[in-house]
Design a protein around this nucleic acid. Structure first.
Lengths: 341, 341
DNA sequence: GATCGTAAGGTTAACGTTTACTCTAGGTTC
DNA sequence: GAACCTAGAGTAAACGTTAACCTTACGATC
């Protein structure tokens, strides 16, 4: 910069003014400096600007684990917005480890982040509280375990999703519908379950506790719980998986026993991650608009950082039913080990 | 920091020495300052250190697109290493767009990155060249289109993978083996194909050009090309997909026609991404040790940044055959639309 | 023609650290 | 006991940029 100033025969102040599009520079001088800047391969030093202006141009996204489902959809949305805004995205995975969380939090406080996107349904070390105290702008994505208005949140209509999924299965004629939930200490899991119950009750069907299984949103749970369900004396005709990963597990377990989808068993998922459409058969699922959630969260955060007021502190996007090919009318009769042809 | 210095009755210099574990401070003073630091919630300002020391503590990972397959495996490995080292991971997707690439490159030059991991098989704007010129440490992951020794590269034995996959199918008795490659302008795609050819030739089987389809590593290509293959007068008994995403496409196309895997068609993939094991049936595939590649790349980069010499500039990790359930002996007779029972 | 306003540009300090260098006091060596 | 060394601590400059404030000159206004 000094170099440019020298070459233009002006002070660095003037160059800085040009660079930052601030007034106080004559038209001719501005043009001349502008040209010089473009000719040289000068790039503003990030650290110095950061130090001086107090903005790092970085946004942290914290999540538990890079998994390629839910998280990836969100990340794509976030990335899209940030790319345009000039902010850079820092990704951090806590691995659900307390020490790692603490480490990250400590590092965050060095003012190297302008804002944070929290993709954690719950946390161990009071991240939200700390961020609030430190006045670091942040937005939480996905329903938080503690409903709060203290900070902005982006969610989706989970309860309704659970209701819709169940209602859809009912409409196909199913009466014995199993659900494999997420961990029930998470509100978001309980919301799905509540929607499921509500739909059943409205249809006048008693809720059978044997058909409610708890998973932890992992594929393995889908496998395990499906096997348990199949071993029931009166197995369900449809399975509602708490997320698409678990639905993939259901597929796998059914495949093992050579039970066909949807002829012998209907399966519905939740999330509509990228691979849901790619499963065989393509998975019918409740769509959460993940990318859009990511986009909105990023946009809200940017507004927060810019000090602009938010219209609402909690945005809830609509879930929707995506009908593909994994659900059909219930089978008649028991599950045969050999498929009826 | 000033505050701490004041409270300890010393100069900031001394505090700085303590913080950076440098000599020149008495044992007692050091302990006293140490205690004060721990008591206060002081965190070193990132920007100032960055400015002074010239290190940002940031590493950029550039990729074309967040996809959740190959890229995710690598990212996980990278993330793991960086987390421990104290570096933060900045993720950037070029979307294969020239303007976006250029934008990123320009931003990178503001010295806000200590190093770069390049997850691009090819690029539009000479990223590698620029990084080289600017002396920014970087490591390329995955085979580059231009074989080079100018910068360090992490790859895997792709050719051998292609060979092994084909050989495995041959060993099962297949004679008509199709391959759906990646874009043939990429060396890495051609390497798979070359391995395939070699295996066939060694087995004395003529290469049938009709069985070689070009895809672009996307699921859709798997679907499209499989359909083309099935419409052949003499369709193959096995399909070798250039990557697992394409294999998923193959699954989908086969599902549509109710062709069973592996009874009527064997499918083998490439990469062994997370979801390969979760497909139904679980996908037999050539494993690239993605996480390890990510880890190694990150470690090499850190060493580069630290100015330590590298043992080798090109590391090639071994691919391996992961046998799951998508391959079996070839079917006898033609493909029936109705499955033979 | 004196006064004022304004636009263009410069001076200087500051952002929070680190580091090269300096100073001081106390101990060691002959 | 003088010369020298060393450890502990401090001073001040520097990293590259920005912003508050100041200066100058020129034109407009009455």
């Amino acid at each position: 910069m000094v170099e440019i100033a020298r070459r233009a025969g002006v002070s660095t102040t003037t160059v800085s003014k040009v660079l930052n599009h601030r007034p106080g520079v004559g038209e001719k001088t501005r043009a001349r400096i502008q040209r010089l800047i473009e000719q040289s391969d000068y790039v503003q030093n990030h650290a110095a600007r950061h130090l001086r202006k107090g903005r790092s141009g970085l946004i942290d996204l914290v999540l538990m684990r890079l998994e390629g489902g839910y998280d990836l959809g969100i990340m794509q949305g976030v990335q899209e917005v940030l790319e345009q805004s000039g902010y850079r995205l820092v990704v951090f995975a806590t691995n659900e480890d307390e020490a790692t969380e603490r480490l990250w939090l400590r590092r965050l406080l060095d003012q190297s982040s302008d804002g944070v996107l929290l993709l954690l349904p719950y946390e161990r070390v009071g991240i939200a509280k700390t961020l609030l105290e430190q006045g670091i702008p942040f937005v939480a994505i996905g329903d938080r375990n503690e409903p709060t208005t203290a900070f902005p949140t982006i969610g989706s209509t989970i309860w309704l999703g659970g209701y819709t999924a169940t209602e859809y299965l009912l409409s196909l004629g199913h009466r014995r519908i199993a659900i494999i939930t997420g961990p029930l200490h998470l509100t978001t899991s309980r919301a799905r379950l509540a929607g499921y119950r509500e739909a059943l009750e409205q249809a006048g069907i008693p809720v059978d506790p044997a058909l409610i299984c708890e998973g932890s949103y992992l594929l393995g749970d889908g496998i395990r719980q499906t096997e348990a369900l199949l071993d029931l004396p009166d197995p369900p005709t449809a399975i509602f998986a708490g997320n698409d990963a678990q639905a993939a597990g259901v597929y796998q377990a059914l495949y093992r026993r050579r039970i066909r989808i949807p002829e012998e068993m209907s399966v519905i998922g939740f999330d509509d991650v990228t691979y849901a459409a790619h499963m065989a058969p393509p998975l019918t699922t409740i769509r959460q608009p993940l990318e859009e959630m990511g986009r909105m969260a990023a946009e809200m955060l940017l507004r927060l950082i810019a000090g602009q007021p938010l219209e609402t502190h909690h945005v809830e996007l609509a879930t929707s039913l995506v009908i593909r090919e994994s659900c059909g009318p219930p089978r008649r009769g028991p599950l045969g080990r050999e498929t009826a042809s």
